[in-house]
Design a protein around this nucleic acid. Structure first.
Length: 449
RNA sequence: GGCUGGGUGGCAGAGUGGUAAUGCAGCGGUUUGCAAAACCGUACCUCGCCGGUUCGAAUCCGGCCUCAGCCUCCA
C-alpha cells in the first residue's frame, strides 16, 4: 500500500487514485530565463522518481509538467540581453532538455507552455469574473479577490489576518485586499501581449498553472507537486482559482519537495548561491548527481557541497564495483525487493531504499554465486533510474582509455618479471592519470578515481 | 508578528514506543610482491535542553533553546 505525505493535511495518507488504476499528476516546472540549477534538478529528479515508481506499481500515469515561457523575469532578461523573448526561451528550453536528459529524467507526457495556453487561461479568468471571484482594478488589470474564497489559506495554514502583506513590499492601492493577485496584466508598450476580452495583456503566473493543469488533466486530479517555496502563495492561489472557476475540488494530494541548501541557506537565484546543472556536470557524472539527490528524503533539506558529491560518487562506485563482471541473468524477485518496496511505498523513502541496494552489494561481494543478487540490484536500481550503465563504462569514465590500457599492459609485463620497482613506477604514473588499479586473480582491472 | 518544517553517533543520512538502517571515515584481521578492491570482526555515540507519560522513548505530551523556509519572484 502506497502512502504519500499530503501537504494539505500535513500527514501521510494511503494513496487512492480518483480513477482506479490511473494517476493524473501535475508538477510546476521551470520558468525558462536561465539555466537549471541543482535546486531545479532536485525537483525534477524527485518527481521523475515518483512517476517511475507509480508506473512500476502498475498505475497508468499521465504526467504533466509545464513550462512558464512568459513572465516578468523573462521579459526583463530578454531586454537585458537585447534579444527577443522567443529566442531567449527557446534557448533555455533547449538547455533544460540537455541538462535533465543527462540526469536520466524521463520526459513528461504533456508539457504545456503558457504562451500556447492563452485560450484556456482567458476562459478561466472569464469564468472567475462571471462568478464574482475577480474584478478589474483602476488600471485595467484583472485581480482575484481572495476574500470571496472562504477556504483561502487551507494549504499553507495561514489566516488572512495573520498575513502581513506589505511587510516586505509596497502595497498596491488599487487592490481590494493587499493579497489579491493579478490574473491578467494590461499590456505595457514593448512587451508581448495577447488579445482578451479585457484588452491586450498577458496572464499572471498563478493562473497559468491552474489553466494548464485543469486543461490537461481535468478539473479534479490526483497529485500536484512542486517546490516547497511554491506552497504559498502559488499553490494556494491555484486552489482558489481552480476551485473558484470550476466549483469542483482541484487536487487530492499536494506534494512539496525540500530545498537544496548551500552553507545552510536555500540555494536560489535571488541569493546568487546557485550552481547550475551544466557546471556540476563538468565535474561529476550525471548519475552521481541523481544519486546525490536521492540520498536524502524528498521532503528533507539537501546540503550541496563538493564533499557531498564526492561521497555520492564513492557510494555509487561501490554499487557499480559490485555489479562489475557479473553474468547477466534475468531478474527474479528476491528477499531484498520486498524491503526496497516497503521503503518506496512509504512516501518514497529513497534513502531507505538505497540502503537495501548496499545490502545487496554486500551480498554480491561475499557470495559464491552472486548473479541473482546482481540481477536484483540492477533491477531495483533501475526503478530509481540508477545503475543502468555498463559498470566498466561508469568506472572507466568516457575519456580515451588506450594510454591507460597500454600502461597497464606494460605494468603487467613488469610484474611477470617480478620487477616490482618498474611495476610500481607505472602504477604511480597511472595514479597521476587518476587511475586506481586492482590486481585480481584473473588479471588487473581499473577504475577512475 | 503569524504560519511550516527541522535539530540523530567523526561526517552524511534513515528510523516516530522496545532499545540507533545505510554510505564514508576509524580500529583489528584475512587477502595482496606492496597496494587497491573485497570479506570478517570491532569501537565510539546514545539521538538539542529540561520536565512529564509509560514496564520501556530518539520515537508520545509540555516548556525552552536553536536552525531553515514562507508571508515579494523563486523548484
Amino acid at each position: 500500500m502506497l502512502t504519500i505525505h499530503n501537504s494539505l493535511t500535513k500527514q501521510k495518507e494511503p494513496f487512492t487514485p480518483i480513477e482506479a488504476g490511473k494517476v493524473r499528476l501535475y508538477v510546476c516546472g521551470m520558468t525558462v530565463y536561465d539555466h537549471c540549477h541543482v535546486g531545479h534538478a532536485r525537483m525534477i529528479v524527485v518527481f521523475d522518481v515518483v512517476v517511475r515508481y507509480l508506473r512500476y506499481l502498475g498505475f497508468e500515469v499521465t504526467y504533466v509538467r509545464n513550462i512558464t515561457d512568459i513572465d516578468d523575469k523573462i521579459i526583463q532578461r530578454a531586454h537585458e540581453n537585447g534579444e527577443d523573448i522567443q529566442t531567449l526561451t527557446t534557448r533555455f528550453i533547449q538547455a533544460m532538455y540537455e541538462d535533465i536528459d543527462a540526469l536520466g529524467v524521463l520526459r513528461p507526457d504533456i508539457e504545456p507552455r503558457a504562451t500556447e495556453s492563452m485560450p484556456e487561461i482567458i476562459t478561466m479568468i472569464a469564468r472567475l469574473l462571471e462568478k464574482g471571484y475577480a474584478y478589474a482594478t483602476r488600471n485595467g488589470d484583472i485581480c482575484y479577490t481572495i476574500q470571496r474564497f472562504a477556504a483561502y489559506g487551507q494549504l499553507s495554514g495561514k489566516q488572512l489576518d495573520d498575513l502581513r502583506a506589505g511587510e516586505r513590499v509596497v502595497i498596491d492601492e488599487s487592490k481590494q485586499h493587499p493579497l489579491d493577485f493579478v490574473l491578467w496584466k494590461m499590456a505595457k508598450s514593448g512587451e508581448p501581449s495577447w488579445d482578451s476580452p479585457w484588452g491586450k495583456g498577458r496572464p499572471g503566473w498563478h493562473i497559468e498553472c491552474s489553466a494548464m493543469s485543469t486543461h490537461c488533466l481535468g478539473n479534479h486530479f490526483d497529485i500536484h507537486g512542486g517546490g516547497m517555496d511554491l506552497q504559498f502563495p502559488h499553490h494556494e492561489n491555484e486552489i482558489a482559482q481552480s476551485e473558484g472557476a470550476t466549483g469542483e475540488p482541484f487536487v487530492n494530494v499536494w506534494m512539496h519537495n525540500g530545498f537544496v541548501r548551500v552553507n545552510n541557506e536555500k540555494m536560489s537565484k535571488s541569493l546568487g548561491n546557485f550552481f547550475t546543472v551544466r557546471d556540476v556536470l563538468k565535474r561529476y557524472d550525471p548519475e552521481v548527481i541523481r544519486y546525490f539527490i536521492l540520498t536524502s528524503h524528498y521532503r528533507s533539506p539537501l546540503n550541496y557541497s563538493d564533499q557531498e558529491l564526492d561521497a555520492a560518487k564513492q557510494a555509487l562506485t561501490r554499487l557499480y564495483t559490485a555489479l562489475r563482471g557479473l553474468p547477466q541473468i534475468s531478474y527474479q524477485k528476491g528477499q531484498y525487493s520486498q524491503r526496497f518496496h516497503a521503503a518506496m511505498a512509504d512516501d518514497f523513502n529513497t534513502p531507505e531504499a538505497l540502503s537495501v541496494l548496499f545490502e545487496l552489494a554486500k551480498e554480491i561481494n561475499k557470495n559464491e554465486t552472486p548473479a541473482e543478487f546482481g540481477a536484483e540490484l540492477h533491477h531495483l536500481g533501475g526503478i530509481l533510474g540508477l545503475l543502468q550503465a555498463d559498470p566498466d563504462t561508469f568506472l572507466h569514465g568516457t575519456d580515451d582509455v588506450s594510454e591507460i590500457e597500454q600502461l597497464i599492459a606494460e605494468r603487467l609485463a613488469a610484474r611477470k618479471q617480478r620487477d616490482w620497482a618498474e611495476a610500481d613506477r607505472i602504477r604511480d604514473r597511472l595514479q597521476e592519470l587518476g587511475v586506481i588499479l586492482e590486481d585480481g586473480k584473473e588479471g588487473t582491472i581499473w577504475r577512475k578515481r
